[in-house]
Design a protein around this nucleic acid. Structure first.
Lengths: 249, 249
DNA sequence: CGTGTTATTGACCAACATCAAACTTAGTGG
DNA sequence: CCACTAAGTTTGATGTTGGTCAATAACACG
């Protein structure tokens, strides 16, 4: 199967899974046969909400997505950032009730894939079941890493780390070049990722700019010193368990 | 199969899995046939270490266990607490290299179960594969919840929440009665769970005692006001996805 | 007993929060 | 194409939670 014949939507998923597992020709073909219903989601709209019991999973085709929870006390904690190719609600295959929400940080296009189709796929192709397992486990590894960041690192390190993570993941998926990435996320949202207020995020970003680790033009964050930024964030990509990390990481 | 014939070690695992999934007679029998090698682990010894590539999973038979990571800056973050019946390194079935460590908080007895046996089991019994999936997903849900705690809640809430969580899980497994539980964990370790210093943990515990939410006699924490403690911690057990929560939770 | 770990207390400090206002930017409709 | 608006960013002044350092007290255990 030459990839030219593959639908670009399905290709997104194949490309993503190939960053964390090794697929064969057969598996790629099977994924390409998945039924998908396209759907556009407005900025700041929930894709799945806390308490839902969805029957489909959402494959991100385009846009930035986050998983989060609102606290009784009014605060919000963002748990992870998701990029095209990710299925942020893959867990609904095995946990029927959502215990958090998924939101579109930008205007987003998703593909809805029925649980039945995905379960069937995993049933028939152990390699794909393995890939799903890995995806979920890497998800958990990201949560742990964020927990360590928020629990034990100062603001400057946390922010640097987050930028490193999103950059590496975007780059691995071919969504960012050498220079940096668009991180279309507000400082308040950054704060909700990192357990900080937007005010403190702002001041710390200025510090990172002053130290020439990053530059920001509007919402585009340009990485000026990749080594330095990794150092500043104590960033070690091991926890992402990438199969083929690009050189220089 | 009457449970009387089942080895108590295997029963621990069966009981645990039955808190998060529903097993049939056949599955219980298959679990009972799992090969296990018993091993004692000293207090404060690693069961698995960051960077290891183990060939077995560790079923906890007795004792308290934690997963953690050391940071370059010298700090430590604990990610989760594990009780008898848990398999804290289940993820090594699908992620070969450990990205964190597992430590015995108390003298602990574990059973080593070969990956091959577990993978075979999951292959032959979809219900068990499903249970493993759920276990890993619930693990991730715990990480998210801790992340929300550390990121967005003050010390008092964090501590109350942690006590609630461990109590509910211990009680569900039949390891704690109505009155409270042994939480054989130092205040420094509590701090490493919650992103606090031991000094602040100490002061906050005193506050919880003063408010009559808990009482502590040595290391035993007695819960004096279960409703109040849940309230103080904004504790909602949904994220544990228990199949049969006990009444009054 | 003595020794090492853990808990407790006190004095002081720093990182980050809060509150509030001004400024910038990107849309939007006339 | 400009004025208007809303959202996001930036700045300043001030407050508080929780950290740091250090000493003492309470245990646990051989």
């Amino acid at each position: 199967m030459s990839t030219a014949q593959v639908s670009p939507h399905h290709l997104r998923l194949i490309r993503k899974l190939e960053t964390i597992a090794t697929l064969g020709e057969e598996e790629r073909r099977a994924i390409d046969a998945l039924p998908m219903i396209l759907k556009d989601v407005a900025e700041n709209a929930d894709i799945v909400s806390d308490g839902d019991t969805p029957q489909d999973c959402s494959l991100i085709l385009d846009g930035f997505v986050a998983r989060y929870q609102l606290l009784e006390s009014g605060g919000r904690q963002i748990f992870s950032i998701h990029l095209p190719g990710d299925i942020p609600d893959l867990q609904t295959l095995h946990l029927k009730v959502m215990d958090h929400s998924v939101i579109a940080l930008t205007p987003t296009r998703i593909a809805l894939v029925p649980h039945t189709a995905l379960l069937d796929l995993a049933q028939r192709y152990p390699v794909i079941a393995h890939a799903f397992f890995r995806d979920i486990l890497i998800d958990a590894a990201v949560f742990r890493t964020w927990l360590a960041n928020v629990g034990r690192k100062p603001a400057r390190q946390r922010i640097a780390h987050l930028i490193c993570e999103v950059y590496v993941r975007a780059r691995t998926l071919g969504l960012a070049g050498e220079g940096g990435l668009d991180l279309p996320i507000t400082q308040a949202e950054l704060g909700d990722c990192l357990g900080l207020t937007s005010v403190h995020v702002n001041r710390t970003l200025q510090e990172l700019r002053r130290d020439n680790l990053i530059a920001s033009e509007g919402r585009r964050i340009r990485i000026r010193d990749w080594q330095g930024l990794q150092l500043a964030g104590e960033f070690d990509p091991t926890y992402l368990h990438l199969v083929r990390p690009w050189p220089g990481i």
